[in-house]
Design a protein around this nucleic acid. Sequence first.
DNA 1: TCTAAAAGTTTACTCGCGTAAAAATTTAAA
DNA 2: TTTAAATTTTTACGCGAGTAAACTTTTAGA
Lengths: 343, 343
Amino acid sequence: MRTTSIRNMEEFASFSGISRPTVSKYFNDPSSVRRSTREKIERALERCDYQPNIFAINQNRKLTKNIGIMVPYLADPFFAEIARRIETLVISSGYTPILLSSHGDADLEVDNLNSLRAIKPAGVLLAPLGRASNRGAIESFCADFPTVNFDANIEGVGEAFVGHNNAQATAVMLQYLVRSGEPPVFFEMRTPPNPNANKRRIAYIETMEQLGHSPHVVQADGEGWEIEEIGFREGKRAIANRELASGTVFCSNDRLAIGFLAAAYEMGIRVGLGDDCSLRVAGHDNHPFSRFTCPTLTTISHNYSAIAARSVETIMAFIDSGTRASNRESMLFDGELIMRASA
Amino acid sequence: MRTTSIRNMEEFASFSGISRPTVSKYFNDPSSVRRSTREKIERALERCDYQPNIFAINQNRKLTKNIGIMVPYLADPFFAEIARRIETLVISSGYTPILLSSHGDADLEVDNLNSLRAIKPAGVLLAPLGRASNRGAIESFCADFPTVNFDANIEGVGEAFVGHNNAQATAVMLQYLVRSGEPPVFFEMRTPPNPNANKRRIAYIETMEQLGHSPHVVQADGEGWEIEEIGFREGKRAIANRELASGTVFCSNDRLAIGFLAAAYEMGIRVGLGDDCSLRVAGHDNHPFSRFTCPTLTTISHNYSAIAARSVETIMAFIDSGTRASNRESMLFDGELIMRASA
DNA sequence: TCTAAAAGTTTACTCGCGTAAAAATTTAAA
DNA sequence: TTTAAATTTTTACGCGAGTAAACTTTTAGA
């Protein structure tokens, strides 16, 4: 039928033959009412298209059913992918995800935090910009709302951190590259927008020394999130200036590697493992597009599903318990070596 | 100071020395109150951190300041890019963007429509899935909220359509390819997830005939949004089976082209314009990554900024006027040929 | 069948703000 | 200064649901 037009819970209650407080109880938790009551309500629900007013619901609740998800740059397929997984998990937990991107801008990050404040989220999953972030703003936000920090760690911020084990991952790749050929130089941005980069450089240097090789870091100039462009431009420069002390290049991340591969291609340098190849290139992240570079990119994968799942589980645990973390836990998931054609 | 803790507009009003209704008026439109009043309020605002409760605000308003933005697949960098631009424009118009992705799923698209209903958006910018969309659900949504359809047209849905001129763009590329070499075959998905594909095929066939060449369409099997993967797998198959009737391949979109390029590379076929190249490949969309393929991809760009700007302007016009469209306008923006190394 | 526990009903108040109407005040033009 | 127009203040009600308290009915166990 769906002809009956119902304006509010009062009308729906009388339509369904159940009192309003009980109907309200049902919408907050269907299992909190008697089975026969639930069935009456659900039968009524099928015969009209009532749905409680979300603004009125949240007005009196200190805690909504909203989960904020905030990433530094959604146009980066890495974040798009992890956000997609997290969104799906949040929905299946019965919460409403609110996805926000800072578009690489620290001011917008603060604005987004304020937007989130306004909707009183039950919890927030936050991948901060990192260095550029306004630490004070994030701290005061986290004091007010349970927040799980993911991907980029800001020490002391939020209830917990869930991320990628950069040290282990870097070491695994390095061991592979050394065992299968020449020890690599490390290619990175001088001022990377994402704080994982520093961990990777440090891990590179340490592991190289442990393996008895001397580390070589080649740094690319350039600011911002146009990372492929920087990898391309600075890759060409590094090749032309013969700055690469090795025939193997380990890029700090896949986007840089994608740019670097394009540079090598344009300069007529064959990349890969074949006899006709003069360069090996590896990346880090298992970026969604790394399977389709030329040659396909050898890289280390984040454990996307574990990171997404654990982040959501963790925030849910804090929400359900209503407690805050006594000691901030850091959960790191190991990376997995993805061997492809480039190294 | 920011020590005064203010709970609601009542308290803020007495704190600022202005009556509550006037304060309310100020928040709805700062320019609607006398300058001296505005200054008093703004001075008070600086001395405390009050901000009106968004749920209470929206409860009584028929029209909120929310603008819904819905795309079929946010993990596709094309949509991430256009969404990013639209979001920015919406913010600078003083509205709050709510970004939703259907993740390629028609059921989720309907769910998203319901989520949007719940927040009573002032207007919606909708890029539908297309073929797979639940047309009835979208129609009834558009009947209730002013909606501007973009990227993928569903005839008769929404107040207006803003999109890319597939016919013009296809013709321009085709003319270029023909003039500079062999007439191309057209490489596309048999069942594309996005409705632009059909327009492109039709334009290809028509333009080829106009130019006096016989069209050849090569179709790739496969469903869903893993488009590079399909381009890669089916590209290899097409090459191996010698299905390509020409040394020039015009791909229906850049993601397909990226997969196709990877296939060619893996099979040792050199792509480009040089004498040592046996294949030319072109794409369509100017995907953010098309600058970094090997070789860089010759393609046709959407007029991203114009499409984003016009979409936002159009919805704003309907919101401001409070009217609905008498006749549904279709606005198409021409594509621009981007000549790179692949063709 | 009796009884206590569980669940539903009534009644009534709250939340924070939009908004309308009438009265009071301020401002700007004459 | 007078006057009309523009603003602000007062007062009061409404929105749609959460929720508490007291009371009534249903259910399940003995």
